[in-house]
Nucleic acid binder design. Structure first.
Lengths: 193, 193
DNA sequence: ATATCGGAACGGCACGTGCCGTGTTGACAC
DNA sequence: GTGTCAACACGGCACGTGCCGTTCCGATAT
C-alpha cells in the first residue's frame, strides 16, 4: 500500500460523494434517492448507510467536499474592499450553478431536518460567520471602525439580504447588489431628506 | 342549502386544512402524510388530491388560511414607529409557536419544490413585501425620507437579517434585535471611528 | 339522475435492515 | 520474505414497511 492512493474506504467515500453531486445536478436533490446513488456508484446501500445517517447528511458532506476552495477573507487593510472581494466570490460560488441549486436544496433540507441543520451550521454557516466576524473585528481593532461598531449586527446585514433574495424572493443576485448592501452598511442609507 | 352554512365542499376544504395544521403541530411537517390527514379528517384521499396538487400546496393553503389576522402596516405618520409595530407583530406570529415551526418548514418545502415556492411568493411573500414598500414609499413621498432613498434595498435590509437569523443561524429573534436592525437602517451603524 | 363523497384496494417506489458469499487487510508464525 | 488466518468491509439480493397517487365501488345528498 503506497502513499499514492488513499485507502479503499476513503476511495469509496469519495466516489459516493462524487456520485451524489453528479446525480444531484442531473435530477435535483428532491428526486435523489440513496438507492440511485448506490446503484450508480456501484456500491451497496449498506456502505452508504454505514457512513451517513440520512440523505441530507450525505448531501451535506458531498457539498462540503467541494468547498475546499477557499471562502476566506483577504486582509489588505481595507475592510470594505476585502468584504467586497470575499462576498463576491462566495456569491459566485453559492448562488450560481452548479453549486447554487444544490446549496439551496441543502438549506431546504436543513429546514425540515434539525440534524442536517445542526451539521450545516457546525460545518459551514458558523465557521463562515466567524471568518466575517474576525475580519470585521480586525478592522475595528485597527481603528477603521468605531469601537462601538456592532459586529454581529453588521454580519447579519451583510448576509441577511443576500440569503433573503436568494432563498425567499428568489431573484438573481449581482455584484452590484452586494456593493449596494455594503455601501448601505458602511456609509449609510441616503435617508434623511 | 342555506346561507348560514357554507357549502359541503367548503366545509370539507376547511376541515382538511384545519386537520393539516393540527397534525402538523403534532408531528411536524416532515412526517406529515396526506394519508394521515385524510384518515384523521375522515375524508377520502381523493378528496384531498382533487383540491391540492401536493403536500406542499395543501400545507401552504392551510397556513395562509390562518393569516387573515392582519400583517398590514399602520400609518401613524411616523415611519419608524410603524415599521417597528408591524415587524414586531409579524415576528411574533411567524417566528413563534405554533406558527413558527410550520412556517419554517413551509419555506424548507418551497426550497425543494418550485411550485410551492411560486405559490408562497405569489400569495404571501410578494404581497407582504409590497406592503412594506408601499409604507416606505408613502414615508418618502411625505418627505420623511430622502428622495434618493432606496426602497427595495431598505426592504431587504429590514427583512433579510430577520429571515437569516430565523432560518439559517436559527437563533431566537427578539423585539430588541428588530429595533437594532431598524436603527441601523435609519440612523446608520456607528461606523466611523 | 347526477355528482360527490368515504373507504378500500392497487401498483409503484424508496426506505432501512437483514443475510450471504466474496474479497481485502493486517497480525502473526515460520 | 512467505504463508496462514481471523476480522472486517464490501456488493448484491431480498425482505417488510410506509406512503405515494390512482382506481374502483357502494352510499349519500341534491
Amino acid at each position: 500500500m503506497t502513499d499514492k492512493r488513499g485507502s479503499r474506504a476513503t476511495d469509496r467515500t469519495e466516489a459516493i460523494m462524487r456520485t451524489t453531486l453528479e446525480l444531484g445536478k442531473e435530477i435535483g436533490y428532491a428526486k435523489l434517492s440513496i438507492e440511485a446513488v448506490a446503484a450508480r456508484a456501484g456500491v451497496g446501500k449498506h456502505t452508504i448507510y454505514r457512513r451517513w445517517s440520512s440523505k441530507g447528511a450525505l448531501f451535506l458532506d458531498s457539498l462540503l467536499s467541494l468547498n475546499k476552495s477557499d471562502l476566506d477573507y483577504p486582509d489588505t487593510g481595507d475592510i470594505v474592499a476585502d468584504l467586497r472581494r470575499q462576498i463576491h466570490a462566495a456569491m459566485d460560488l453559492l448562488d450560481r450553478p452548479p453549486v447554487g441549486p444544490l446549496y439551496r436544496a441543502l438549506i431546504g433540507e436543513a429546514l425540515l431536518n434539525p440534524q442536517v441543520a445542526a451539521a450545516l451550521n457546525d460545518h459551514f454557516i458558523t465557521p463562515q460567520a466567524e471568518k466575517t466576524l474576525a475580519r470585521l473585528k480586525a478592522a475595528r481593532d485597527q481603528g477603521q471602525l468605531s469601537p462601538g461598531f456592532d459586529l454581529d449586527l453588521a454580519m447579519d446585514i451583510l448576509s441577511g439580504p443576500l440569503y433573503f433574495r436568494a432563498l425567499i424572493v428568489q431573484e438573481p443576485l449581482t455584484h452590484e447588489y452586494v456593493d449596494r448592501v455594503i455601501e448601505a452598511l458602511f456609509t449609510g442609507m441616503e435617508c434623511r431628506p
